[in-house]
Every structure is written in C-alpha cells, then in structure tokens.
C-alpha cells in the first residue's frame, strides 16, 4: 500500500496519471454513451420520452461515474482497466448507433 514512506517511481506516477484520466474522462464517456443507449432504448420502447430518459440517465450517471472511478483505482492491471473503460464505451456507442 502506498503509505507515507512509499517511494514514488516514475512508472507509479504515470500509472496514477493514466488511471486518473481513465476514471475522469473515460468514466465520463462511459456514462454518457451508456446513458444515450439507455435513453434511446427507452424512447424506442415508448417507456419514456427522450428528454425524460436523457435526464434520468444523466442523473444516474453521476453515481455510475464514481463506481467506474472506484473500479479503475481498484483493478490491479492498468491494461485491463483501459480495455474495460474504452471497450465498454465503444460497445455502448456502437449499440446506441444501432438503436437510435
């Protein structure tokens, strides 16, 4: 654990910086694409009008964003994290393009 006496190597610092970007920007893209997909699905199924779906999933997105940040800073391997965040965002976006 990175306690007070930990020596921070350059690799460790880059790892933290990359995780920060993945959590902050990657998390944003992830919740946005998921929200867009869900809102479009709900609108197509006529469960919610589009503005309502957009609003509801944006409100939900703040908590999901934190959940993604927690996972990003928990998972051991940076490569898996990057793949998980970027891959899921790409998948959500592709599905959104299909259903909108």
């Amino acid at each position: 654990m990175a306690g007070p006496q930990t020596t921070f190597t350059a690799g460790y610092r880059w790892n933290i910086a990359a995780r920060f970007l993945l959590a902050f920007l990657g998390g944003f893209v992830c919740v946005s694409t998921f929200g867009a997909l869900a809102a479009a699905l709900f609108a197509n199924a006529q469960w919610m009008p589009l503005p309502q779906g957009v609003h509801v999933f944006t409100l939900f997105g703040f908590v999901a964003w934190c959940g993604i940040a927690m996972w990003v800073f928990f998972h051991e391997h940076l490569r898996h994290v990057a793949l998980g965040v970027v891959g899921s965002a790409a998948l959500f976006y592709a599905l959104f393009l299909l259903v909108r």
């Binding site: 694409t33 867009a36 409100l59 703040f62 976006y93």
Partner: peptide, 14 residues
C-alpha cells in the same frame, strides 16, 4: 448543473 457537468448523454441524443 446536471447538463453542464455531464452533457454527454444529451449531446449524443438531442
């Protein structure tokens, strides 16, 4: 500031 802080979903859909 819902849509100022997280405009992504709205940007993609509307």
């Amino acid at each position: 500031y819902t849509f100022e802080y997280s405009p992504g979903t709205m940007f993609l859909t509307m």
